[in-house]
Amino acid sequence: MAPTLTEVAQRAGVSLSTASRAFSEPDRIAQDTLDRVVRAAAEIGYVASSPRRQRSGARPTRATTVAMVVPDLANPVIASFVKAAQAHGWYRRQILVLTDADNSPDREREILGELHGRVDGFIACSPRLPAHDIVELCGDAPLVLVNRDSDEVPSVLADAEHGLSQAVEYLRVLGHERIAYVQGNRLSWSNEHRVAAVRRLAQENDVDLEVLGWHAETIAGGNAAAASVVATGATAVIAHNDLVAMGIIEGAAQLGLAVPDDLSVVGIDDTTMAQVAKPQLTSIQVPMSRAGVISVDLLHGLLAAEPADAEAPRTVHLPTQLVVRQSTAPASGWNPREARR
C-alpha cells in the first residue's frame, strides 16, 4: 500500500492539515516545519497529489475522482442519495468512490485520512464526526457536507422542521394531546436538529411531548423502543426515520396494540418502504435524492474554480413535507368539531 499523508504527518510530528499545507500552500507554514514534512515524505516515499482544477466554466478534460462517505448504505434513504449522486456525477464527469463508515466516527476519520491525496474531492453525507474535524482531515481537497452544517465549506441540509411542523399540528388536530419522539444516533446532526425542532413545535401547539433516548436507526432499533413508547402513555409517536417507525409498529403489535387504532405512528424520510408497509406509513418526505444532485453540483463548482475565484461557503436548505397514509388516525374520543376550534 502506498504511503499516506497521515503517515507523513505522524512521522513529521505535525497535524494532518499542516502536512497538507506543506504540499499545497508551503508559504503558509514555517520553514523548519516545511523541511520536516518534506523530509518525512521522502523517507517513506510519499508522493503528493494535488487537486486537479480548471477555470470556472471549462469542460473537464477527464473525469475527476470523488470520495463519498456515508454512514450506512443499508439505510434506503442513504441508498437513494448515493444513486442520485452517482447518476448526476456521471454527467459531471465525476467517478464516485463509495465508502460506508458503519456509523463510526473513528472509521470516518480513518477513511478520510487514507483517501486524502488520492482523490480530487470529498462528499460526506450525514457524517458522525464534527464538521471542523472533517475539514481538517480533508485538508486542501474540495469538500461538500450533507446533513452537517458548517461555515467553512458548502453544505446541503435537509431541513425536517417544515415536515415536523406539519406532523405535530396534524396530530394535534386529530386529538393527540401526548406524543412521543424516538431519537436516532446521538452523533447525527439530523437527530439533534429534529429533537430541538419537535420540542419547540410541541410547546407551540400545546402538546405534551416525551423524548425517548437514542436508538439504532433500524427496524430493530424501533422494535426495541416500542415498549418505552407505550409506557409513556402517548397516543402518537414520531420516529427518527421510517425504519425505526416500522420497528415501532412491529413492537406495538407484539405488545397487543394496533396501529393506528391504539397508536398513531409517523416516520421520517418517506422511503419506498413507507408506501408498501402494513399499514402504509405516514412519513415526512425528505428530498435526499435532490440532496445528492446538489452536492455533486456544489463539488463540481469547487473543482472547476481557481482558488482566487472561491466564494463564501454556501448552505442549501431543502424543505420537507408530511405525507399522510394509513398509520395515523384520530385519537380515541376525537371530536372533529372540537378540532376545528
Rank of each mutant, 00 (worst) to 15 (best):
V237D: 06
G163M: 05
A245D: 15
C125A: 12
G222T: 00
H132W: 00
Q183G: 00
R128K: 07
A225T: 09
G222R: 06
D159Q: 09
E136I: 15
H193N: 10
T232F: 15
A216S: 12
E250G: 13
A167Y: 10
H132R: 14
A167F: 10
P127L: 02
V135N: 12
S155L: 06
V146L: 15
P127Y: 13
R128Q: 05
P127C: 02
L137I: 01
Q166I: 11
P154T: 01
G233F: 11
A124Q: 03
V168T: 06
L212E: 02
H240L: 14
S188C: 11
G184L: 10
A252V: 11
Q203K: 05
Y181S: 09
G184M: 07
V168K: 08
G117F: 08
F122H: 01
G221Y: 00
A231I: 09
R194Y: 09
R148W: 04
G247D: 01
G121K: 15
S190D: 04
I249R: 14
A239E: 04
L143C: 06
I123A: 01
T218V: 08
Q183H: 07
H193G: 03
S150W: 05
E250F: 12
I248R: 12
V211T: 07
I248A: 13
A227R: 12
E217N: 04
D151M: 10
A202K: 04
E250P: 05
I134E: 03
E204N: 00
V229L: 14
V195Y: 12
R128V: 11
V230K: 07
R128N: 01
D140E: 02
A226W: 02
V182I: 11
A131F: 13
A180C: 03
D151A: 07
